[in-house]
Each structure stands twice: as C-alpha cells, then as structure tokens.
Write a protein that binds this DNA or RNA. Structure first.
Lengths: 249, 249
DNA sequence: TACTTGACGCGAACAGTGTTCGTTTATATA
DNA sequence: TATATAAACGAACACTGTTCGCGTCAAGTA
C-alpha cells in the first residue's frame, strides 16, 4: 500500500520530536539555568519552552503562571542555604554566618533575589530558614517580638542588597566588556563625576569622593549587617520584659 | 474653487488634533501621574503617548528611552524631599526625620522607589539630598568613611522598603477589594497559614504568629531605621581616628 | 526669495511578552 | 475496547520598547 499524499490545503500538525515528558521539576531547573546564565530578564515562558523543545502553552499544564514559576525557582535557590543547630553561646555569630551565606547564595544566582521582595516565607525552604533564624535568636535570648521584626528586616536587607548588586551586573550584559572591566569603568566614571561636581554647590560630595566610592559591595553589605547585629545584641543585654531597649542618649 | 476629492487609494496622514508641543517636562509629568495612579507597570511609552494624544515614537525626540524617563520621574519625586540645615546638637534626630520624610514621599508615589535601586545619586535632587545627609552626619562628628557607607545604606534601606511596601499595594490593583480590605485579607491568610503549620516541623513559627505578623509596615521601617541610627551613633561616641568602633562583646 | 538644515512628530513595522482557547495526542481507567 | 482525563499543541489576542523612513515646520543662510 503506497502512502496517500496529503492534500496541500490540509494543515497537519507535525510533532517536532518524540515527546519527552515535561514536569514541574524540569521547568524549574531549566528556568534556573536561564536565570543563572542571563538574569531574570531572559526568563520568558517562551524561552523556557524553547529550551525544552516545546511551546509556551505546554508549561501551563505544570505551573499556574510565570509568577508561580519564579516562586518555585526562588525556593529552589533557598535550598542552598544551610541552617545550623542553634548554639546559645555564639548565636550572634551564627546569625552573621547564616546571613552572609544567604547573601552569597543569592549572589550566585543573578537577580533572583528580586523575587524575595514582598514575599513572606511560605515555601518549604523559606520556612525552613525562617524557623532556623528564629531558633537562633530565641536561643540567644532575643525577645520574640524583636526576633519577629528582625526576621523581616534581615530578609529585606539580604534580598534588597543582593538584588541591587545584581542590577549592576545586569548592565554589563548589554556591554562587550567583561564584568571586572565594566564595573571598573562604571565606578571610575562615577568617581570622575563626583570629582567634577561644582564645589560651591556640592562641597562635601566633591570633597569626599574616596569615602563615598572606596568600599565595594561586600564591604557595604557587611557594614550594614554589622550595624543590625549590634543593634540586635543591645536588645538582649538591655531588654526588659516587653522587649524595649534601654534608652540611650 | 471646490476641493478636489482625495482618491481612495491614497493614504493621507491626518493629524488627530492641533499640535500641542510636547516637551520633556510634559512627558515626565504625565508619566508621574500614571505611576501615581496605577504603578510602574502601567507606565508604557504607548500609554504616556496616548495620554498626550500622540504616538509613542514622538516621545523619543525628548527622552532617550524608557529608562531615562524613569530616572527623570524619580528625580521629580526626589524634589519633594526637604533637606534641613545641619544642627550638630540634634543631627541624629535630623537624620531620622529626613529619612522618615523620604520614606513617606516614596510611599505616596506607588512603586517608584524601585528606580532608586542600583541608582547612584547623580541627578539634581538626588545630589542635593546626598549632600544634605552627608552634611548632617559630618556636622555630628561621623567619620567620613562611615558617613559614606551610611549614605549608601540609608539609600538602599529606604528604596527597598518603600518598593517592597508598594509591591503589596500593587497586588491589590488586580483585586476588586479596596486597599484596606485587601491587606487585611492578605495578612489574615498569612496568619492562618502560619497557625496551621505543623508544630512538629515549624514549632517556633507556629508558636509565635503574633510576634511575626503583629507589626505593620511603618513599624518595621521605623524599627530597622532605629537600629541603623543607634549603630551610627556608636561610631561617634566610640570612634577613634580611623573610624573603627570600640569592640563590644 | 529659494534652498538647506535641524528639530519634531508620525505611522508602520519589527521582535518580543504572558496567557487563553479549542483541538489533538497520550495515558489511565472501567 | 471504549471512555475519561491529563498533557501538549498551535493560533491568536492584547500588549511591550524601539527603530526607520518620511513629512512638516521653523530658522538660518546664500
């Protein structure tokens, strides 16, 4: 039996390849790979679908929408953050290490930290980390109300700084320079700009360029974290029953 | 002389209305109005053009691209932030007031604060504010290196928190509830979620729902700001020549 | 006065976005 | 084997930022 030719006016739907089963896991992994390599901006449903050899509509059988995909990727990243067993003798240092670790983890995943903004922990790993940080603070004698506030502030601080840092890196993607050269040029231009400011109008900015532009991103993060941790410590040493710190002139 | 009818195959370009001159000022004002009413997401070049009775391509004679438009709108918002004359006797309180003012200003302009992230002050009002904050800190005896770091951290903190707060508000735009009802429902659901967490796995989160969800956004901002300001004060009282704080066990 | 130049505005088009809808295909179940 | 359900598919919708070539207008110059 010879094959009957298909009439040229008939549309046939030709699958491009044998179907490999999609899964949520596969979509999330692929999405994370794209973000890692090219940033959030490159993450479109079409792009993920293309990487998987399918069409964007197919993804919706596994994730509700793009926002859900982002949340899933974010929680995947959170899985890389370790939670130590609380030690009351060194709870402050444990907090510092854990937060520095989180900052580093986010820093290795492009601008994924943006997803953490306005994102109250409800996913498995976000809850695990929140529980862990809360445990460390309570073990160290931090009053619960303060611990709750600090959980929130730490989360904001880490995500905001990691996201901001990543935004600078994002700008290099549209450039033909490598990252180091790009950042050096960018911040060099900012130095020159500040040096060229009219001293009559901006004498302090123009006169303290080194102080303003000297420290790098990691130093800035560590400095702010130190401030927060020192402030937190003062609630343990000074606190009375309702969690109010002793007034300090 | 009667008018000669236009042949129907000829495309004529019919101006929709008498030309009112566009200007950068007009585009920025219109953009800000859209952001204020509907958030950054509603700000497209087409939308601004439509509001001005023109086409999107016309905007490019006045602004280089959308990013420049955002920067101009942002600086417009910054113009609403007052800068006091430094008073060495109450420099800390001045800083607090100025930062609270900035937070309030950003809060009244939807999610514009996002533009401030990774945005080193170079525009007129951003420079004015940076110079003002620097002046207050230096007048209060803060070492220049610390002042430079704090400028950066304050900027990040204000923009991040204002932006995060606005993200919650943004979600209400797609809802049929008014803002208060929406926020109450949202955070009520979060409370229930935390209360329903398995106590075997998340005992602290499940057991401290009130501490975690009680404070509102303004309280959280103020608490974090207080931490930073207390930390900053310690650099003035404790600082030696190189700006290092005295070690505190 | 006629011509040139620059600024401004315009419409069409490009290449892209998230998502829905109805249909087709594959798999599971009775 | 027939039916039901889940997964995948293609087309389409309504939208995005931006560029390109063209037309119009005003100002400047020969």
């Amino acid at each position: 039996m010879t094959d009957i030719p298909v009439p040229p006016w008939r549309k046939t739907r030709v699958p491009s390849a044998p179907r490999t089963a999609l899964s949520r896991e596969l979509i999330v992994s692929t999405g994370l790979r794209i973000v890692d390599a090219e940033g959030l901006e490159a993450l479109s449903m079409r792009r993920v679908a293309q990487e998987l050899g399918t069409g964007p509509a197919s993804l919706y059988a596994h994730v509700a929408n793009k926002e859900e995909l982002l949340d899933l990727i974010y929680d995947r990243v959170m899985a890389e953050i370790a939670v130590p067993e609380p030690d009351p003798e060194r709870w402050l240092e444990q907090l510092r290490e854990m937060i520095m670790d989180a900052f580093r983890v986010f820093g290795s995943h492009a601008d994924i930290a943006r997803v953490g903004l306005a994102n109250i922990p409800t996913s498995p790993n976000a809850l695990r980390i929140a529980e862990g940080q809360l445990a460390i603070m309570l073990a160290g004698g931090v009053p619960p109300r303060i611990a709750g506030l600090m959980l929130d502030r730490f989360g904001l601080y880490i995500c905001a700084d990691a996201y901001e840092s990543a935004l600078y890196v994002n700008r290099q993607r549209g450039s033909d320079k490598d990252l180091d050269a790009f950042l050096e040029e960018t911040f060099g231009q900012i130095r020159e700009f500040y040096q060229s400011l009219p001293a009559g109008r901006f004498p302090l900015l123009a006169g303290h360029v080194d102080a303003l532009t000297g420290p790098d991103g990691d130093e800035r993060f560590a400095f702010g974290l130190d401030l927060m941790l020192r402030g937190l410590a003062s609630y343990v040493q000074d606190a009375d029953a309702d969690g109010s710190p002793t007034p300090k002139g």
